[in-house]
Design a protein around this nucleic acid. Structure first.
Lengths: 208, 208, 208, 208
DNA sequence: GATGAATGAGCATTCATTCAT
DNA sequence: CATGAATGAATGCTCATTCAT
């Protein structure tokens, strides 16, 4: 994970501790998986006592959630500025794909953790929060798609398919890369995926 | 799961048992998740003793693997005949997407289980088997892609991106549907995803 | 184990089976220990079904006992002829030590098994049988010792110490050899132990 | 076990616990045997939770080893001072036998446990430790034997037989006493065994 | 006689969580 | 704030034994 991903999201975390534990927990979760990582393993890696962990995060679940939302925040923090530069439906779509890939390659550990923990968080007590965050993130997309359809640049398709059409391919590749099934960084194929997304949605894909 | 998905894959299984246990285990895993499903839960649902389960499957892991490969076999059994009908690169690609969606909608439980268990199986002692099976499945695809590129109908792209470009979108939607995030059956959008896949890959997507 | 130790003790065992299972069980017990050897392990090595084993031996305990008493019988069968040759207290004592060592080196597997299983058999339902057998074996010794004491060749010592004084040293060495703590065969030191036993007991050890 | 055998070996053990559990475990092991003693039995006798036992000893095996080495330490602690008083080969040998018997009669429970657990410990992960301890203990013996041979007081015999010749008889009797096969305390026969050992080894056993 | 599927009590071990110090 | 001993319910798994075929 980039040196300061946590700095970005938890800038004020007092002292070394809370952030340090999160960092160690992340490593453990990625190494052993969510359920197989015991508090003892984290405690050992972080060099603190069980008590301290419980003092800061309440329960294991809380630790996972804290980590997950930190990742979500970081994701948002890096993607937003990029997306705001978009001026046309096409650039919006391509920028979305590219900045998604950008974040995954810049923070592969957080990205892997998000894939790992999403289901668990969604099922737990923080599931509602997650749903709200997702909806919010989706609003931006909606705006540009509607605009593109009205301009005749984007094909009118079933609304619920847009999200999959947009990021499905990139996400699939990122998953493969993060799990080692494919060696080349998604970054090297960013334009491929950006263009494929555009081709999938555009009325006339060949016109630049 | 369709009444006879297991019949298809384990036709000769003696008496009630092995198949019956698998069926019950599948239900349990889908209800509670892989790790949260205890042998006791399965035992109870199947109405057999712990011993019987271990007699047949060795370990919990073995039960999961048996289920996973049964699903894989079923997947293959249903997709293969469809794919063999393909006559052009375009029909091959579209058929691949459609028959993938076809299987998922016909066997949503098996499909959900595959998403659920893949990582676990890949990490376990049957991981090698899984890799070999994947490679084999991929060969078919390669042939048609190569043909399409040679004919100038398919864009030459980085090899490792083809798989993601092809099924990434459909898979993403299927995942969403299977987990209830989206209500409409993938089947209703099969042509959308088939066409999107073709547009992503085709040299000239608009020519029929 | 010598090719025909079982032949000696179970000459009439019908067909291959009962004897074959015993042989395999012996190997398993020596490899894994008494408790860690499961019926399944034995079944596998013998290439028969669980049912067959239970048909022949009733319970695991029965299998152990059968093996143990077979070993005891073999022990007796080999020692007796040797002991009967004794003509003086001294030769009786030395012969006892030597033939004990002789049996251990000829049937090390049976010997090891006896050390392994004695406590278990003694505690089980065959414990009484074992005690009776022991007493019987001890009678011979008593006779010669009494004779020797009367002749003034053997020191009068507390009765209960004689057995230990006689075989304690040889047994201790045999144990060490059987468990690999010492490399040289007890046979190579047979006279050393025979003489030491005599010296421990004799009134005048130096007179031949 | 003497009130303070554990005090001797684990003087600083905090609070009630670690030592208390060891004491209870010892009783259980002696009553039921190594394998038949379940953690539950120990837990119940000690009045603590399973977790506490595992917290302190890791595994059942670890509990056995802890107990075994505590016994070994105690053995050494009691024998050493006695052995150092020896001034001649003869007194060294006789003292060795006598102090061995002394320890066994003073700590019969620990002694019985050592016979019970030795094989298991030797086979387990602490086997190496045990071997080193044994070797160390043997060194003292070597010194006196060499001295005795040089002085012409001890017969030159195969080196590997000395240990068995020395303690084999006493050990055999102690085993019998500890398992109840013989009623009289080894202490009552200490000089018998000490003298027998000397006679077995001495060049001229009759000269005082 | 032989087979092996079925049984289920029983065991070692784990692990999140609490709380006295 | 920090510590780590203590808890005990829960779990995966074993294995001797039975019995219908």
């Amino acid at each position: 994970m980039s040196q300061d991903a946590f700095e970005r999201v938890l800038p004020g975390a007092r002292k070394t501790n809370k952030r340090h534990i999160l960092r160690c927990a992340l490593e453990c979760f990625l190494e052993h998986g969510l359920e197989s990582t015991t508090i003892e393993i984290i405690r050992h890696r972080a060099g603190v006592s069980v008590g301290t962990i419980y003092h800061h995060f309440g329960k294991k679940e809380g630790l996972v959630a804290a980590l997950f939302f930190a990742a979500l925040d970081d994701h948002k923090a890096l993607m937003w500025p990029e997306l705001e530069k978009a001026t046309t439906p096409r650039t919006a779509i391509e920028q979305l794909v590219k900045s998604y890939i950008g974040w995954v390659t810049q923070e592969p550990e957080l990205a892997r953790f998000m894939f790992l923990a999403r289901a668990s968080v969604a099922a737990g007590p923080h599931g509602v929060t997650l749903m709200l965050r997702n909806r919010e993130q989706y609003a931006f997309l909606q705006t540009w798609l509607a605009k593109g359809v009205k301009l005749g640049q984007i094909r009118p398709l079933p609304k619920e398919t847009y999200a999959s059409l947009l990021v499905g391919q990139a996400e699939n590749y990122c998953r493969a890369w993060l799990s080692g099934r494919v060696p080349t960084s998604p970054n090297d194929h960013a334009t491929v995926f950006a263009e494929a997304a555009w081709r999938s949605l555009a009325t006339n894909p060949r016109r630049k």
